[in-house]
Design a protein around this nucleic acid. Sequence first.
DNA 1: ACGCGTTGGTTCATTCACTGAACTCTCAGT
DNA 2: ACTGAGAGTTCAGTGAATGAACCAACGCGT
Lengths: 175, 175
Amino acid sequence: MALGKDYATQQCSIARALEVVGERWTLLVVRDAIYGVRRYNDFLTHLGIPRAVLSARLKTLTEEGILEKRRYQEAPPRDEYVVTDRGIALWPALRALAVWGHEQLMDHRLRHLRHVECGTELAPNGECPSCGTSVPVADVLLMPGTGLDPDPADPVSRALLKPKRLLEPIETGQS
Amino acid sequence: MALGKDYATQQCSIARALEVVGERWTLLVVRDAIYGVRRYNDFLTHLGIPRAVLSARLKTLTEEGILEKRRYQEAPPRDEYVVTDRGIALWPALRALAVWGHEQLMDHRLRHLRHVECGTELAPNGECPSCGTSVPVADVLLMPGTGLDPDPADPVSRALLKPKRLLEPIETGQS
DNA sequence: ACGCGTTGGTTCATTCACTGAACTCTCAGT
DNA sequence: ACTGAGAGTTCAGTGAATGAACCAACGCGT
């Protein structure tokens, strides 16, 4: 969003947050990172984002401490982008947006979130109704719902057709 | 944000939500509407947003059913924009963003949220710790915190220096 | 040794959205 | 008739997003 000079005027933590994650595509990159996407090409094909924009977003998200660029092999040099605690802390905001988008704008549940310990579906506030506790992001199981394309083109969407834990790296299995 | 054609590709309620409220300024307009701002000039001066952009945002938010345009006097014709239930439903997402912005990016609390019934400060998840229930938006008391400019230029910021309930219309007292 | 494929980028022309300033319109009050 | 407030619209200039093309480092098969 880059409210730029307006940030000083705004005196508001929402404006401050949007200053960092409010630009086009940014929250979707963070969502993917929490889903377990780590590699440039996976972000690229899953989001359908222009390369130049993806590079810019990964750069600012890394600079803001929301992602961490990490070398995962030396020859040839390959980096991956791993979501940090600061990025994981965005999960409640993303979940709230998903709840709103689903309730207000859509007709079926595309994905379900379950507590990996007990299998219970999470309440809208992110807590586990049967355990009565808030569930850490790493203990959330992401399940496919109805209305998903059964045969998507990109490998990330294909991987997400199976239940998986959040944060767990996605196996695109194409190399 | 207007992800445009990408919405069909995305199959995600977060993307769908950002399609509607992800554009620059949009969430700040909704925030102001929940704070009780209703009039064009108040949005304008409080946000420091260009007039053309404000007009565009009010138009799409009205079309999406997040704000409702309402005639409040006939001569001269004057309209105000009142947040609807669909807009109020964005409150958890806005609160989550505010929590993140405050925790990760700022040093002091600019505003506090209290339960109007009992005066208790709300937990990060939006519930009242002493009542143990989730607090309806209309029962949230917005309190000024430390680090706020004590003598802001615009009338909305001045009105927000006093505690007030969310949704309650802001009295700018300038007419 | 040569070309091919993969990954992770950069560059660039075009299009699109945002910005700020100026202008418009309607009406009230004096 | 003049002034002023509220709620916009119009428009030229700027900056960001887009999509396609290009680049580079390396691994591998032959």
